[in-house]
Design a binder for these strands. Structure first.
Length: 480
RNA sequence: GACCCGUUAGUCAAGUGGUUAAGACACCGGUCUUUCAAGCCGGUAUCAGGGGUUCGAAUCCCCUACGGGUCGCCA
């Protein structure tokens, strides 16, 4: 039988980096084994689920290249399935109706916690008579369904990552499987779906490990085959707390919008909690598919390190096809109004040259834009410190001469411009930096950036001459 | 509080009884250079603590400490 795994987010928030990693691990296992990756939406919480979050999760999955073979299935549309199994459990006397009110339960729980007893439900509704039930229902109470759970013995969770995890069944109680509004509770819906969908490996975050004995009890009560489990460690914030908003971006879409590449996020996330066992760090998705294994997933939670992600992003920024980087960068330029909404092929070609020039000195697509604004607009000032240092009256003369020299360069290429510049420096008896620095400032307004002659070639002769003379004028004005 | 999982440098981590305890990010230095990066070369820094077991422990066992998770009619 082929392997079947699933990712089951609940649409109550955006796709979190932790969720994304869980999805990635599932996807890798499926792709590696030729099995199926199923997407299920756990939307039984009607209050908190929203269409907006659903779309955002789907978009993030697609952006990461995590395609699914089946689904998305929606738990909200599978009520019949849960009802059928709940009724079966009731009929087989493996479950019962409970009329306790949430407030009563909360009070009991609190008291138990305070007294140092395990906070388990005492099973007081287990033996309600028909008369009891009728009386309570007449009083307007809507029952929940609870599973009868034996508290004898122990339950062993066979986990592919941590081996057997033993739980004393004392910690269990008759937990709720159907809420009073008729919706299935998480553990129940999850087990019914996983079983009915033929899920063979449940790969999920470690926070679910403590829930697993409950789910196992359900598999057994329902007579369903148990899957393999693999609980992957959590991803923590730098202060070792749960990753949250106050630690910065947490959702995949935020990273996308901040100019991170899916290649980088995928690679980084794969290495958070998993290691190939070799010295490699840069492992693209296709390679991950071949190399990934649950056995090599680590047991300890890992801390999210934005710095390393950023480094990796910088790496992918220069190694991924220029064509792809350009098209990913385009919306960032458009957002700044530097490139039109429907760019002509000529504009795109220009953009490609610009991106090619600046991409190896920045880390994100946002930085690509920041590093390249002067290619698209003349609306900037000279960097103050640089102007003080390089825009001397002598420089004005040099820039004027450089302009004259550039005017005659044919064809106007980076190589030809450089040759002309070096020759000019020699003729004037100045060291090349003396000529280069003011030129860079004149052309870009900045003291740092890509190779000077590459800039010239992309900018074009006309623009260069214009900016050179503009700088010369500026210097003379400043001198007065 | 109870239960479960965990603990190798600031961070990600390799390591499965005998290693000079890999590698990467970050940091520091050097090199290259028209600038800034990148690249290249080099450096600082790690086995939570305590007991065992053993000729020998980062590796096996126990305790403590610390961190995380669960204990919801959230998922």
């Amino acid at each position: 039988m082929s392997l079947r795994v699933r990712f089951a987010p609940s649409p109550t928030g955006n796709l979190h980096v932790g969720g994304a990693r869980t999805a990635l691990f599932n996807w890798l296992v499926a792709r590696q084994s030729g099995g199926q990756f199923i997407l299920r939406i756990d939307d039984t919480d009607r209050e908190r689920s929203s269409q907006e979050f659903l779309e955002s999760i789907l978009a993030a999955m697609k952006w990461l290249g995590l395609d699914w073979d089946e689904g998305p299935y929606f738990q909200s549309q599978r009520a019949e399935l849960y009802r059928r199994d709940a009724e079966r459990l009731l009929a087989e006397d493996k479950a019962y109706l409970c009329y306790c009110l949430p407030e009563e339960l909360a009070r009991q729980r609190e008291a138990a916690l305070k007294a140092g007893r395990p906070a388990v439900y005492d099973g007081r509704c287990r033996d309600l008579t028909r008369q009891d039930r009728e009386r309570l229902e007449a009083g307007g109470r809507q029952p929940v369904v609870r599973l009868k759970v034996s508290r004898a013995g122990e339950t062993v969770v066979r986990d592919l990552i941590r081996g057997g995890v033993v739980f004393n069944n004392e910690v269990l109680d008759d937990f709720i499987i159907v809420k009073s509004n008729g919706m299935p509770a998480y553990n129940f819906a999850c087990v019914v779906d996983d079983a009915l969908m033929g899920i063979t490996h449940v790969i999920r975050a470690e926070e679910h490990l403590s829930n697993t004995p409950r789910q196992l009890a359900l598999y057994r009560a329902l007579g369903y085959a148990e899957p393999y489990f693999a609980h992957v460690p959590m991803i923590l914030a730098p202060d070792r707390s749960k990753l949250s908003k106050r630690h910065g971006a947490t959702s995949v879409e935020e990273y996308r919008d901040q100019g991170y590449l899916p290649q980088a996020l995928t690679n980084y996330l794969a290495l958070l909690g998993w290691s190939p066992g070799t010295e490699e760090e840069i492992i693209p998705q296709e390679e991950l598919v071949k190399r990934f294994s649950l056995e090599r997933v680590s047991l300890n939670p890992s801390i999210y390190d934005l710095g390393k992600l950023t480094w990796m992003n910088g790496h992918y920024l220069v190694t991924v096809d220029l064509e792809e980087i350009t098209s990913r960068a385009l919306p960032f330029f458009q957002r700044q109004g530097l490139v039109s909404q429907n760019p002509s092929p000529k504009e795109v070609d220009y953009l490609r040259q610009v991106v090619g020039l600046v991409r190896d000195r920045v880390k994100t697509l946002v930085e690509v834009v920041d590093a390249a604004t002067y290619f698209f607009t003349d609306d900037w000032d000279y960097e103050e410190k640089g102007a003080g240092k390089y825009f001397t009256s002598e420089a004005a003369e040099l820039l004027a001469q450089a302009g004259e020299r550039l005017a005659g360069v044919e064809p106007f290429t980076a190589e030809a411009a450089e040759a002309a510049y070096r020759q000019l420096a020699e003729e004037l008896g100045v060291k090349t930096p003396v000529l280069f620095h003011p030129t860079r400032l004149a052309l870009t307004g900045r003291t740092m950036g890509p190779g000077l002659f590459g800039i010239m070639a992309v900018l074009g002769r006309e623009k260069c001459l214009e900016r050179l003379s503009r700088a010369a004028v500026w210097i003379r004005n400043a001198a007065e």
